[in-house]
Design a protein around this nucleic acid. Sequence first.
DNA 1: GGCGGTCCTAACGCACCCCTAACGCCGCTC
DNA 2: GAGCGGCGTTAGGGGTGCGTTAGGACCGCC
Lengths: 224, 224
Amino acid sequence: MTRVLVVDDEPDFRRALAVTLRSHGYTVVAAADGDEALQLAAEVPPDLVVLDLGLPVLDGIGVLTRLRAWSTVPVLVLSGRSDSADKVDALDAGADDYVTKPFGIDELLARLRVMERRVSSDAESAPVSLGNVRIDAGARRVTVGAEEVRLTPTEWHLLDVFLRSPGRLLSQRELLAEVWGPGYETAQGNLRLYMAQLRRKLEADPSRPVHFVNEPGLGYRFQP
Amino acid sequence: MTRVLVVDDEPDFRRALAVTLRSHGYTVVAAADGDEALQLAAEVPPDLVVLDLGLPVLDGIGVLTRLRAWSTVPVLVLSGRSDSADKVDALDAGADDYVTKPFGIDELLARLRVMERRVSSDAESAPVSLGNVRIDAGARRVTVGAEEVRLTPTEWHLLDVFLRSPGRLLSQRELLAEVWGPGYETAQGNLRLYMAQLRRKLEADPSRPVHFVNEPGLGYRFQP
DNA sequence: GGCGGTCCTAACGCACCCCTAACGCCGCTC
DNA sequence: GAGCGGCGTTAGGGGTGCGTTAGGACCGCC
């Protein structure tokens, strides 16, 4: 299920858009202003973002800039202004698409499908096996041999990030920003703790990790 | 240099667009009809495609469909029709963006930059091969033959600088300033040390370097 | 109110990485 | 052939990052 974050300050418009998106199979999270949007995006990272430019206090470009500091989620910008300079500013600030109000809902849905294609082509979730450890991320289930192992929400969150980029080295900044949200990039002790937890539960010999390897000074790598 | 394939049947428009794109640093290949476009795309795969929908014989949607059979290159569709159904058709057929004529050239360029961002972020993980040594800077991973070689943070940092400018001679001042920061331009012993480390880990015969060559009195050169 | 579970902070060894210094070698200059 | 500067190599000490443990704060549930 694709999760969409809708950011717009007009309650009626926001609600109408949310209803339409839900009727087309999306899971919708709505925010009324920039701060709420950033907070929601950090707590439960969405798959797509629909962002209105005309927000009070923190405007759309501001939201986009701060979001892009740690996230690469596709963002579709909505705006009442069709001025070319506005479009260029938003697109160069990190937006993936720009639609001017009023717009046809069919076009918006089609453009969302384009962004969805890109996301889903990256993420494919099939069960992973490490020796006698089986990880089924979709079903939120881990079994070691015959017996089941329980993971806490934070452990799952961390494991998800690794499953998304197998073999790649993930810097501590990336991991911290992804799991604990932006602003927690300095809580390294936390990351060390949960890496130990994952290893204790998923590695055959936790003191000699094979699948969750640390590269000193760089970060951690998940080896399937 | 980003390669753009421009497909449009109107010679004047095609030429004008090509000139504009070239003046903004793109390498442009132009095609006047669908068959020529597909042939060119197959011969020398472009990084981006700008496709007019109103082509004779094989129309834009047809080109898009055949292209998508084997290529995932980003495609920006141009069209004189602003009808919502046309946009939906093109986007669902595999287009990444849809711009209606007449359009502001600034907007088109901004939208091309968006697609360019995506291509370059994917191509970030393009591994480099030196003999039986494989360097994947994106995944932070180096393998010599079958076994993996670990590099320290400073070694990676230094290697990154070389990978960014292959074949170019880099002065010691440049290297020192880039890796150790400005002010460390005199710590040449340091640089010699880490060059030795890189050679020991990446050269087949470290005492006779082939890829990391010193030019006495000048600096070092990376030969892929 | 008691209790199990989860999450976070702080502190302590230990290993490893980075830097400095010194020495031998080669090629260039005179 | 002697002197010199630049380069490659080795060894050792200081510092930092990592794994680990213990303890307390917070929340939901019985």
